[in-house]
Simulated assay, not measured.
Amino acid sequence: MCELPPTHSEPLRSLCNECRVNGLCLPTGLPHDGSCLSALISPRIRIRKGAALFNANAPLTSLYALHSGSFKTHLNNAEGEGVVINFWMPGDVLGLDAIATEHHVCDAIALEDSLVCPIPYHPLQTLARDFPILQQRLNRLMSREIIREHERVLMICNSSADQRLASFLQGLSVRFVSRGYSSHRFILRMSREDIASYLGLRLETICRSVARLRALRIVTLHGRLVEILDMQALIALGLGSPGGHSIAPVPA
């Protein structure tokens, strides 16, 4: 893992109104006269690819609104191997894992050079008492991550390898659309090893599933460039619909 220190970038100040993902971000619960944002949010921090935004067991100091770039979070198992538990895109808020104990339970690693907006947690709590809509927004963010994790567990327990990969790609498509990008063509910032870990599969299983989706002309992959050729078939496969292409389940 790269140990480059984070680099402070430009102050946030009046930039929230200009941010393309501000509708997904926590500070949308604040009035946009600038005063609350200026008092609350620290200057943006640049995290280099491979560096950690925070590590497991580190104390909670801030939540982090992801302005640009991407991250993965992972836990270490009993053997000390990292297990990927989530991927993060612009507009997401990292650090919610630490709210219960005020210590992080996972590592957050940048998948590319990224910019985050630190939101100091204890001042945020104070401000939320004055602006209930901000507390409501924070609650919704936490609920969304719980739901996402429940869906992932259900997928791993009940889906074949091909269904897991289809659901994963379709889910990424939905998240890209919500950020103003193409639903059918996007870049995977994570490695196939990371995808395999997230989906509870072996790397060779992921490679075979990619080959089958390519052969069925549902998806093509050129390096990390994904092109979805048949969205309806991808959705049907992810749901296990009998109306989709019939593909034999593959052991995880």
Rank of each mutant, 00 (worst) to 15 (best):
R137V: 00
I133P: 05
C157D: 14
Q163A: 07
D230L: 03
D92R: 08
A252E: 15
Q163S: 07
P90A: 07
G82T: 09
F186V: 08
H8F: 15
A252M: 06
R129M: 09
N55R: 08
I41F: 06
H8R: 15
V21S: 15
V226P: 02
F71G: 03
R152M: 07
S68Q: 03
E18P: 05
R13W: 12
E3K: 06
L154C: 11
S9W: 03
L229D: 01
K49T: 13
N55H: 13
G23H: 15
I235K: 14
H32A: 08
P90V: 10
A233T: 05
H103L: 01
A58T: 02
A108K: 06
L30H: 04
L134R: 02
P27C: 15
V21K: 01
H184T: 14
F176N: 13
R175H: 11
L63C: 08
G69S: 08
S167N: 07
A58F: 05
T61G: 08
L169A: 12
S62F: 00
L138E: 00
C207L: 14
R224S: 07
P118S: 04
S62V: 02
I85V: 15
H32K: 12
L221C: 15
L26C: 04
E227L: 10
G180T: 09
L4S: 15
P31Y: 06
T101K: 07
I109P: 10
R189M: 07
L237Q: 13
F71P: 03
Q170N: 10
D107Y: 12
E193K: 14
F176W: 10
